[in-house]
Each structure stands twice: as C-alpha cells, then as structure tokens.
Write a protein that binds this DNA or RNA. Structure first.
Lengths: 192, 192
DNA sequence: AAAAAACATTTGACTCAATATATATTTTGT
DNA sequence: ACAAAATATATATTGAGTCAAATGTTTTTT
C-alpha cells in the first residue's frame, strides 16, 4: 500500500522522502502510519519501475540539507489511476492489543480491567479533542480528505461511547456479583 | 498477539489447532483473522516454553482424524494473567485498502468512486445483518464477548452511516460542479 | 570555533503475517 | 472398492512492516 500512497501524494505536489512521511503522519496519522524504512526503499523501487523520477536536488530557502524532490511520471499516473478505479480486494483490517485483552477480561481482575478501560477513555478523549481542533485544516484540503477526517472523528466518538458503556456494564455486573457473593459467600464465579 | 490469543482461548477449554482457528474466525472474525501458518508454529513454541501441554490425542466421537488437544499450564495461566493486566503498549491499528483509495478519489472519476462506495455499502449492510443475527450467540458467551460483539455492530453501523453521508456529499459536489461547468464550460476542476 | 540540534537519506536485521502447498486420517459419495 | 470431501497437522516461502541505527548536511546554540 505504501507504493500507492506515495504515488497519490505526488499528485498533490513534488515531495522529498522526509516530507512524505511528515505529510502522511500529519494527515493520516489517525489511521495510518509509516516508517522511513518503508519510504526510501519504495521511492527507489518506484523510480526503478519508472513510476516516479527525481526532479532535482534542491533547498528552496529552507533549512537543513538539500532535498531529493520526487515527481510522478505519466506511467505512474496511469498505474495509480488503474489502482484507484479497481475495487479493493481486501476488507478493513483492525488490530488492537487493547481489544485483544478486552475479550479475555472475564478471566482477570475486573478492577484492573476498569483501570485499563479508563486509560483508553482518556486516550480517546485526548485524540478526539485534537481531531476536532484540526477540522478547519481538513476543510481546506478537499472534500475527500475532509470526509476521511470526519470518519476519524466518528470512529473516535464511537469508541468513546462504547468504552463508557462497557465500563458501566462491567461495574453493574460487579455490583451484581457482590450482591450474589453476599448471599452466597462460597461461590466465586470465574467467568461472567 | 497470537500467543496470548491461544492462551486465552485455552482458558475456556482444551482445544486442538484446527478448532482454535475455527473458534477465532467464528467469534472474532469481524475484527481479526488467523492462519494455520500462525497456529501450529505458535502451538509448538508455547509447548516448548512450557505454557501449554498436549493433553492427549483423541477423537471424542467426532469425524475425521485424531486431534491433538492442548491444555494451558499453570505457568501459562500466570504469564497470560500478567499480560492481561499490563496496559496495551500500542494503539488501535486500522488498515483499509478502500479508505486508502478514498483519500485520493479527488484525483479520479467521481462516478467510479460512487460505484465503489456503493459496493462498500452493500458489503457493510450484509455484515451488519449477519452480526445482528448473531447477537443471541454472543449473549450466551459472557459479558465481555457480548460487549465486543456490540462494538462490531456499532463499528459496522458507523461505517454505513459515514459511507452514505459521503456518497451524498460527493453527489452534491458533483451537481455543483455540473452547475459550475454549465456556467463556465471551459473550467474543469481537477481537485475538489 | 565547536557542539548540539534539526533536517534528510539510507540500510540491515528482525518480527509478524500471508500464502501456498504438502501430508495424513477418517468419513462420505459414487 | 475407490475417489472425493472433510477434518486435521504442518511447513516453507514470500511480503509487509517495525525498529534501530548509521550517515550526511545545514543551522542553531553554547
């Protein structure tokens, strides 16, 4: 996917490697990240395949070392358009070490589970504030980028709602457990 | 993560490799998948590390070849609990070839974009129906599994809302574009 | 003047996941 | 009886991503 992300970005303007990572992190950081270890090898491969070319080594009144500016070629535009117009072959992939743990919280200490859920709530609240504060920027970047930013906000808000709801359900279940334990002190249920 | 998923599942009951994959696909398929290429090497490693042991080779009045049943050990339970109680070190990771394309739809044909969005809407509608139909099953699997299933439903519904909203916005923008083009036929905007 | 920081490029080692394929055993269908 | 299908185990290869570190150049700080 890095290949097409780079080709896509080079539609906006010519860029050097370091700026490509910056741009991705600033604009897609809420849903995707990338490493230098991915950028430079891909730039080389795209260049070898004739999809981009190095348009120059410049500095443009900016600080720091000279930059290798990359530009997309006609061949690159063509291959990018073909990719853009094909239906995605795979579904959304989601990986979350927190959710992986959550599934098994029935085997652990509910108090600790609630602590970790509280940490997640704080994290998502922070992220949500940051995303909402950035909405002005997305508005200026075009319809599709704005819609993606809205998706990020929606996803964030949805996670927050669910986390808070889960927290309540867990505490309720615990209260019920304590009531049951009071009535039956010798019973200790291991699984909800 | 496969390691802890396997350890977690073996808290429910002893299982053989093939059944571990089945279980994960049936219960976490909406958010995680796994391959045989991951299961058997991990089973071997967990066994070598003393976290699980092979409890027997049985058939239990079931069809097909004999099964190697794995059971978690006390050491395995201990290490699993330690993992369960640590805070997750990484955030949610989300990868979607569709969203990767979506970001760049400004460079493509809006008609084709809407077609692909329609495909996604159909897919999520289908998934949502399936998840809602399965809610009874989750209800019986414990509080945490039910909450995760609800998250899957919420995520699905949120994606559907956003896709439909995006579709409307894109068509609106296109209509505006056509009005503009009618007034200024020599202008063809490449980017929203 | 020299050191530290910022900006930029690059690479190798490693981990994890995906994929394809192979083999084995039992059950079912022809 | 034999082939196909289902169930189960297993592995090698490839692809993708992570991570850490190295190197280079310019600018800023001490």
């Amino acid at each position: 996917m890095v290949k097409y992300a780079i080709l896509g970005l080079l539609h906006y303007r010519n860029m050097h490697g370091y700026r490509i990572k910056e741009h991705i992190e600033r604009n897609f950081g809420h849903m995707w990240s990338i490493n230098y270890g991915q950028i430079y090898p891909n730039l080389k491969k795209l260049q070898d395949d004739g999809l981009i070319l190095m348009a120059g080594v410049v500095q443009n009144d900016e600080k720091g070392p000279p930059r290798k500016l990359y530009a997309i070629t006609e061949k690159g535009r063509h291959e990018f358009t073909a990719w853009l117009e094909t239906s995605p072959e795979k579904s959304l992939l989601l990986r979350d070490p927190f959710l992986m743990r959550f599934v098994f919280y029935g085997f652990g200490d509910p108090g600790r589970a609630v602590e970790i859920i509280d940490e997640q709530i704080k994290k998502y609240e922070k992220d949500l504030t940051r995303r909402e504060n950035n909405m002005d920027r997305w508005d200026k970047s075009g319809l599709y980028v704005r819609l993606i930013a809205e998706l990020g906000v929606n996803l964030n808000a949805m996670m927050l709602d669910w986390l808070k709801h889960s927290r309540e359900e867990i505490l309720k279940a615990e209260a019920r457990e304590l009531d049951n334990d009071a009535a039956n002190p010798n019973i200790r249920r291991a699984v909800s």
